[in-house]
Each structure stands twice: as structure tokens, then as C-alpha cells.
Write a protein that binds this DNA or RNA. Sequence first.
DNA 1: AATGCCTTCACCCAAAAGTATGATTCTCAT
DNA 2: ATGAGAATCATACTTTTGGGTGAAGGCATT
Lengths: 143, 143
Amino acid sequence: MRKTILLYALLLALLIFLLKVLEYKFFVRDLSLEFYIGVVALLFTGLGIWVGLKLTRKKNPIPPSPGGKFVPNESALQQAGISPREYEVLEGMAQGFSNQEIADKLFLSINTVKTHTSNLFIKLDARRRTQAIQKAKALGLIP
Amino acid sequence: MRKTILLYALLLALLIFLLKVLEYKFFVRDLSLEFYIGVVALLFTGLGIWVGLKLTRKKNPIPPSPGGKFVPNESALQQAGISPREYEVLEGMAQGFSNQEIADKLFLSINTVKTHTSNLFIKLDARRRTQAIQKAKALGLIP
DNA sequence: AATGCCTTCACCCAAAAGTATGATTCTCAT
DNA sequence: ATGAGAATCATACTTTTGGGTGAAGGCATT
């Protein structure tokens, strides 16, 4: 970003310099203020468009693509210290279930599910369930 | 588009007019050629950025997708009737961002993001963002 | 017996997400 | 030019999540 700004400033300086040269060399100043402005406007509009295009470019992460049946990465699981029960809750989350639904499925109270999710967030360093899912996938914990 | 160009021309004309007025009223022309240019440059850079953003919003469907990058299932997208903007929000969701974070990234208000997510839920027949992500993945909409 | 971890559950509070409704603007195709 | 759809934003309200704290029973290990 710093580089871009610098380039920007340099370009502007160069432009002014060129105009000054024109001004004193050929005495065409009075005749073409509009021309100057037009040129500058055109140039910087182009520059602006370029910047705008730069801004809207976004990147896309490349996730691992599985083959057949999924096998959770045991070492990553242990590394994160995720317990069996927590893992079950994680699976439910990834499948798009609400805490209440997970609780029903696992015959738990919603409070217990919340405890598990909270612990999962800490262990996965996530602040939202969507983020936890994302990270768990990146670690190969879930398909 | 015609309107945009017209606006553009009008703005340029107005600017030149203003500068002319300044020139003849206050005789500050010589002192501030750089100033003029700076103002014009700034203005039109902003305009250019705006135009750039506008442009990428429309002609986007074919972003640079070299080998390895994910290509969304276009037919599934159309089938679900998901608009480009909604898709961007969907991507943000899948990457674990909160509505506020998505809003910041896309220069939107959180309300707009909520509208998009609500529409996504209807189109994907989901009741939660985690479920929407799950379904979108199943449809090959997102990696 | 003491310690540590897992599992279970409760309560409270705050923040985020989701729902519903309505409005404006712009673009596009008819 | 008219109408449909996209995109934007707002306001108000409900539900779900998430965070913090505490606690009790079970099961290993020390």
C-alpha cells in the first residue's frame, strides 16, 4: 500500500513537472487550461479505475479435496486436545444443526452443548461456530 | 450508463467553469496550477474508483480462475437464483466471518448483509448460516 | 487421598444472528 | 415507459450464540 501511494505521488509530481515545462517552453498555458484539466482528469480517472479494480480483487483459499471416506486427522485432534464428546458436537455444528438440535441428537441439555462449543472455540481459536467449522476443516478434523 | 457519462461530462464542465471563474475573478491562476491539478486529480481519482467498483460489479462472472482455483457451479447458482452480491456474502459466511465483518469487507451496512443472508437462507432452504454453508458446499457453490 | 480431566448441567448477561416489513435507487428487458 | 429484480439501508423484534462462573459426579493417575 505504501508503495502504491508513493507511486501515486511520484506520478502526480511528474505530471506537474511536465505541465510546467510545457508552460514555460511553449507558452501555451492560456490556450489550454481546459486541455490540461481534461488530460489530468482522464489520466486520474484511469488511475482511479485501476485502483478500484485492485480493491475489488479478492483471494480464494484452496481447501484439501477428499477422496472417498473421511478419516479425521487424529494427530490434529490430539494436538488441539479435543475430547470425543466435543468432537461429536463439532460434527453436529458442521452439519448445520443448532445447539438445541445437537442437544436433542446427543440426549444432552442445551447447556452442556454450549459448554462443549465454548471449549471447542477455545481449542480451535475461533469466535464463531462458522469459524470453528472453517478451522476444523482446514485441520482435516471434519470433511 | 448513458446517465453516468452525462453526469461525468457535466461534472467536468462544471469544474472547468469554476476554475475559469476563479481565474478571472481572483487572478490566482499562476499561483495554483499545481493546486488545480491536485484537486482535479483527487476528484477524478475518486470518480475513477467509483466507476471501477461499478464496473467490476457488473462484468465480474469470469474472474481470473487459473488452475487450482475453485470454480462455482454456475448452473446450481442460477437454479437457486443467487445473485452476485448474495454470493459474495455467502463466501464471507463460509469463511467464518460475522455479518459485521462481511459488511466491512464489502462496504455495506450490516442491515444490507442481513438482507442478503435472509434471502440466501430462503434460496438455499436453510434456517441458519451453518446450514446454508453446508448446503452451498453440497451444491458445489463454494469450496 | 489428592489431582486432573471429562462430562454433565445451571444461570445470567451480552452480542450476534435471524425475521418481518417497508423504502429508495438503479439497471435491464420488454 | 413500465415493471421486475437487484442492491442498498432502516427499524423493530425474537431467537440463537457466546462468555463467564460455578458446581457435581465419574474415572483415571499419581
